[in-house]
């Protein structure tokens, strides 16, 4: 197990380095002079020289890259151009809101999708199954930038049940969390259905039924338990999709998280902050994938020895 653990962690290092390199090169992809782009057409030459020196863009590329990586190891992501606040502090301020939203959305999706997937698998081929499968496909096809406004129109504007934007009370969380949860619930329901259906056809389930184990017990204790591994994996891997979804969802509902900060900083051409937000989301995603892989190895011994 230790060998598997070390190998898997070592394999992550080049990926994280690649991510950091790509994020570093973003500012150099800006067409023309990035400093001019940040300050606007009317900026004075003195201001341009000053900002270029402040960002270190007047140094050779390799030196800039080295300084960027060195900064990362110390948790130094630079300074916001607009607010002069350290980027790491600005992101840390917004992180709890994003994680709150993401975790509630994932919990909602799990609570809704897993029972739906199990029912669809047990009743495979029936109308119930078709309805559940179609519902899942509709959920996958409904982009969050449509679902969010739609929910706001019905439940905020029409019925007045929930606030349309902001953060503070649990009521503020409901619509953004549903918006973020819907596509995840759709994927999870499909995965649960396929996974439970596979297990239901296994001989040990038939053997359990032959021994007189009730249908409910055979499904829940035997088939569902064994189908949990792929479900847990999907849940872990989908965390990245939830984080990207949060960028859009936070923008719709003015939720003060990292996603909204990213879009706002793009609008202000605050590139250090843009780089910081993207790096944080990508590294969180990579860590989640690593964690899922490790958990997978822990749950299924066959994986470790491959």
């Amino acid at each position: 197990m230790l060998h598997f653990l070390i190998r898997r962690i070592l394999l992550t290092i080049p990926v994280v380095l690649g991510v950091a390199t790509l994020v570093f090169s973003l500012i150099h992809l800006v067409p023309g002079d990035p400093v001019q782009a940040m300050l606007g057409e009317s900026a004075s030459p003195a201001d341009i020289v000053e900002l270029r020196a402040r960002l270190g863009l007047d140094r050779p590329l390799l030196v800039q890259y080295g300084a960027f990586l060195k900064g990362l190891t110390r948790g130094d992501l630079g300074t916001s151009l607009r607010t002069s606040q350290p980027v790491a502090a600005a992101i840390a301020e917004r992180m709890p809101a994003t994680f709150e939203l993401a975790l509630v959305a994932m919990a909602m999706a799990t609570l809704f999708a897993i029972p739906l997937g199990i029912i669809a698998a047990v009743r495979a081929g029936t109308r119930v199954d078709h309805a559940a499968t179609t519902l899942a496909l509709v959920g996958m096809s409904m982009p969050n930038f449509y679902l969010g406004p739609l929910l706001a129109i019905v439940f905020s504007v029409g019925l007045g049940w929930f606030p349309v934007s902001g953060r503070g009370t649990p009521a503020h969380l409901v619509l953004p969390a549903i918006t973020l949860a819907a596509p995840l619930a759709a994927i999870l329901a499909r995965m649960t259905r396929a996974s439970v259906l596979d297990e239901l056809h296994e001989l040990y389930v038939l053997a359990a039924r032959a021994r007189g184990v009730s249908r409910f017990r055979a499904v829940m204790i035997h088939a569902f338990r064994n189908s949990l591994i792929p479900i847990v994996t999907v849940l872990g891997l989908q965390f990245g999709a939830v984080l990207t979804g949060a960028v859009i969802t936070e923008t719709i509902f003015a939720w003060p998280g990292v996603g909204r900060l990213l879009i706002q900083s793009i609008g202000f051409r605050d590139y250090p902050l843009v780089q910081g937000c993207i790096l944080l989301i990508a590294v969180t995603y990579v860590s989640m994938n690593l964690l899922t892989d490790l958990l997978y190895g822990l749950l299924d011994p066959r994986i470790r020895y491959e």
Binding site: G18, L22, G245, A282
Partner: peptide
């Protein structure tokens, strides 16, 4: 591997933000 380390649309957002 590196490109897949960016979840979904995030890399597209990053590229368009720069370009």
């Amino acid at each position: 591997d590196t490109l897949l380390a960016f979840p979904g649309l995030l890399l597209a957002i990053a590229l368009v933000a720069a370009l």
